[in-house]
């Protein structure tokens, strides 16, 4: 959905894992942007009908960009910058609760 204006920028490259696939992105990008630049169209399925949704506002208002980041569900991917080794997954509907998670 998105294109980088300067693929060969001298900004640092960062590798993140999106849905099990390693992708190379640029430092400073938000998770939402980085994922949309990787030929992705949707980033979550809605909590009720399960339809595809994607980031809408890019500024923390709409909560459409909810993703699972480093094992934590329902995070606003447009507000978080990529970090080396980050694990990113689509948020599928409502979150689960494993008895071990505890922040």
């Amino acid at each position: 959905m998105l294109k980088r204006l300067h693929e060969n920028s001298d900004r640092k490259k960062v590798t993140i894992n999106f849905e099990g696939v390693q992708i190379e992105v640029l430092a400073g990008e938000t998770v939402a942007a980085a994922v949309l630049a990787a030929e992705t169209d949707y980033t979550r399925t809605s909590a009720i009908s399960g339809v595809h949704r994607a980031p809408y506002c890019q500024m923390g208002i709409c909560f459409e960009c909810l993703m699972e980041i480093d094992g934590v569900p329902n995070r606003q991917a447009c507000m978080i910058e990529v970090r080396e080794g980050m694990k990113v997954n689509r948020q599928h509907g409502a979150r689960g609760l494993s008895d071990e998670v505890s922040v």
Binding site: L2, L5, G28, A33, A54, Q58, M59
Partner: peptide, 21 residues
């Protein structure tokens, strides 16, 4: 998916150096 705010595109441009396809 594929629908966004116009200002959202502006944000992506400024903060991520990206433009929509």
């Amino acid at each position: 998916p594929g629908v966004m705010g116009a200002a959202a595109a502006d944000i992506l441009f400024k903060s991520c150096d990206m433009i929509p396809e």
